[in-house]
């Protein structure tokens, strides 16, 4: 199970303020699907606004394999100049 830590605004908006969610997923696509079931609407929002860090590294390739014990942070994506 990957441990997912959704930060604001996602935790409040989709997951009832949950700090940690355990999700079985082989990559971030699967993880987003699973999270969308827990918090309907998250999937669509994630495409537009979410950034993911896996084990401390930003990961923008959602197809990269996810280790079973991965720590995944979800936070808002930011744009540079």
């Amino acid at each position: 199970m990957a441990q997912v830590h959704p930060l604001a605004p996602f935790a409040g908006q989709f997951f009832g303020g949950a700090q940690v969610l355990d999700v079985a997923a082989s990559n971030l696509f699967a993880l987003v699907d699973a999270l969308d079931k827990l918090g309907p609407g998250f999937g669509e929002d994630a495409v537009l606004r979410a950034a993911f860090a896996v084990n401390g590294m930003m990961q923008t390739d959602w197809s990269a394999p996810l280790a079973p014990d991965a720590q995944v942070m979800v936070f808002p994506r930011v744009a540079g100049g």
Binding site: V47, L48, R49, R77, V78, A79, G80
Partner: peptide, 9 residues
Amino acid sequence: LEVSLGEGS
């Protein structure tokens, strides 16, 4: 309508 623009949307 929001579109994804890479870094942001």
